[in-house]
Design a protein around this nucleic acid. Structure first.
Lengths: 201, 201
DNA sequence: AGTCTTCTGTACCGATCGGTACAGTAGCGC
DNA sequence: GCGCTACTGTACCGATCGGTACAGAAGACT
């Protein structure tokens, strides 16, 4: 993808992106398998011919949705890696980046976390590879912290899974314009993860 | 359900339960909407007629799977409520109960957490009601701890969501016979949630 | 043995599935 | 205005969807 942008109409790409976004919302409500092409056509106000002119296939649409999110996530990982904070600071920063994505793309993230098992073949392996980069980034920060004595001697993998669970799960209840902002939640979660719920005194 | 057990064959109930369990595994692999009746028939080695004799409908099958898990979860909540430990102890206990269920019914739990949006009508409201009981139980323990001064003055709801996220997410990687036992993970998570990852000194 | 209920396979239903073929329309370069 | 390509709606494809009808097989009870 990218090299075959070829001679497409001026706003082909923009139109395609709009379709991806709209479809993400529909998928988020009805599920990937639970949503038919007809439903997507109606939501995008397009005939089947027009729709397929932009998306290629239903699965490609799913790929586009998940790729969009993973692009953002990995960009966040890079920014954090490029920073030079302590492990605790980097963990805070990554939480902020991730929850921000979650609020900016609630539908896309829902689809990603819910329907990634529907990806097949090399699409699936590619996705797992990218997800592994993200999860490893968390684990590495924790491992660094343990090595530096800034963190307790926990099992880094298990601590990373706890961190990921806390943050991933937020896609179910953290919405733009809701009770909490991404920043609020990220701060609370970082405090909790770093210092626990027991008073320090 | 229950009052119309009526005159069913001796092992009708057992047969039905076996079908539910087998189908849970199939759903866990292919998703609810992604799995057809024909697939369920093959997995259960039954014709459509026979299958429908036991399950009524596809959605009833989904309900049976989710009910099984929720029955266990709420039984765990009751046991914890009946105990008289400190908030910290009760949180530990609940984590143990929950992760134990997660390991004993990995397929059922996967289906529950992944496909509950497919429930419709009063089935959906009933499910949400029962899930709320579970989530409130977590929140109440935390609220009690804060009130008693055993926990920091966090927002109980947010802390509960963190706790739930950590534990719920484990359905993706915690499997029977895997690297960690439910008890191991529960203990690590409780330590982490109570005291954080920063050394206490 | 006869009867009656429970159980099960087969055939079938209309609807919808994801996807394609293709003829036409619209808009841009000239 | 001409021509060419990008775009779009309609009709259609075979396959599968969830579910039903129903006849017969299999047991249990008498």
């Amino acid at each position: 993808m990218g090299e075959n942008t070829a001679r497409r109409g001026a706003n082909w790409e923009a139109r395609r992106q709009a379709i991806i976004d709209t479809s993400a919302k529909v998928f988020a409500q009805g599920g990937y398998h639970g949503t038919g092409i007809a439903e997507l056509c109606e939501a995008n106000d397009l005939g089947k011919g027009a729709l397929y002119h932009y998306i290629g296939s239903k699965e490609e649409l799913l790929v586009a949705i998940t790729d969009l999110v993973m692009d953002e996530v990995l960009a966040g990982v890079d920014r954090v890696a490029a920073s030079d904070g302590t492990p605790a600071e980097r963990l805070r920063m990554l939480g902020n980046e991730y929850l921000d994505i979650l609020v900016r793309y609630p539908d896309h993230v829902w689809v990603l976390l819910h329907e990634f098992p529907a990806l097949t073949g090399e699409r699936a392996t590619e996705f797992h590879k990218r997800r592994h980069v993200f999860e490893s980034a968390v684990e590495t920060i924790i491992r660094d912290g343990v090595k530096a004595g800034a963190f307790r001697k926990t099992q880094p993998r298990l601590a990373a899974l706890a961190w990921l669970g806390m943050h991933n799960h937020a896609y179910l209840w953290l919405h733009p314009g809701g009770k909490w902002s991404a920043g609020d939640v990220a701060e609370n979660f970082a405090d909790l993860f770093l210092d626990g719920i027991t008073p320090s005194a």
